[in-house]
């Protein structure tokens, strides 16, 4: 395991170049391309705001900010999981021609989609300012949450990417799964609206529920995130990463034969 860690350090420029490639291709080397990448969560924000404040008469104040604080990190999750799942299959020609640590492919997807998320945060700050939401020093805790989410997403794609090599319809199931996951995560609703005994379970089995609620506490409510709760979420993510890594190394062995 130590030698693999050294190898990943040796290939650090590959990670950087893969992330740069993803971003350049996504933005097509233009500022407009970057704005375009934010369109998806912003449009969803408009739709949800219309549905919940106009059609359903939902009284949650500053609903656009309320929903955007969750939509942006969710957008990271959904793009990372979808693209991460197909990352090995998409790069089959390369994997069959050149040796490099294959783990870097799903990892770089999490990083590039994460960079896209972080670059989009100023848009969220803009909406916070427009709706006069409080800017507190607790915003400085955002990097911790970003780190926890990155660890969690890496764990997920490390399992799904090789699985998609063996079972090519994994990506189809992931698409359906992401929709279900979206509804099961407190994005367009608050965790406080959930029946209490189920809310506890939601936190336990869905790390995204915890992560999204933490973002919302900081950026929407402007209050203090519970450090113990955050630590627990982080520990869960790390444990999942170890499991994901072990599964990846196990499945990686016969990968070349199936690509």
């Amino acid at each position: 395991m130590a030698s693999q860690a050294i190898e990943i350090v040796q290939y650090h420029s590959l990670v950087r170049n893969l992330v740069a490639k993803d971003l350049k291709v996504r933005y097509k080397n233009s500022v407009l391309g970057f704005v375009w990448s934010l369109l998806h969560p912003l449009l969803l924000m408009v739709v949800f705001t219309f549905v919940f404040t106009q059609l359903l008469d939902q009284r949650q104040e500053d609903f656009p900010v309320f929903v955007l604080t969750a939509l942006l990190p969710w957008h990271w999750t959904s793009t990372a999981v979808a693209a991460g799942t197909t990352s090995l299959v998409d790069n089959a020609p390369l994997i069959n021609k050149v040796y490099f640590p294959r783990i870097l492919l799903p990892v770089s997807v999490v990083l590039s989609t994460g960079a896209n998320y972080v670059l989009g945060l100023p848009a969220l700050f803009l909406f916070m300012a427009l709706f006069d939401r409080p800017f507190t020093p607790w915003l400085l805790a955002i990097p911790v949450l970003v780190l926890i989410q990155a660890i969690f997403l890496t764990a997920v794609v490390l399992v799904l990417a090789p699985l998609n090599v063996y079972f090519r319809d994994t990506s189809v199931l992931v698409e359906v799964g992401l929709t279900a996951w979206f509804f099961m995560t407190p994005i367009f609703y608050s965790i406080e609206w959930v029946v209490p005994h189920l809310a506890a379970w939601m936190y336990r089995i869905n790390p995204m529920a915890a992560i999204v609620s933490e973002y919302r506490v900081i950026m929407y409510s402007g209050s203090v995130p519970d450090p113990l709760f955050t630590a627990r979420t982080g520990a869960t993510a790390l444990a999942l990463l170890v499991v994901g890594y072990l599964i990846f190394t196990r499945l990686n062995r016969n990968l070349g034969e199936h690509l």
Binding site: S13, N17, K21, K24, K28, P93, L94, K97, V98, F100
Partner: peptide, 28 residues
Amino acid sequence: LELGAGFHPELSGRDNVYLNGSIYGYSR
């Protein structure tokens, strides 16, 4: 084994030189 394996069509020749080098483990 195959020339240009790992080239990305959308990237410039310059970017592809660096990307290809890093696939073989060479730093920027």
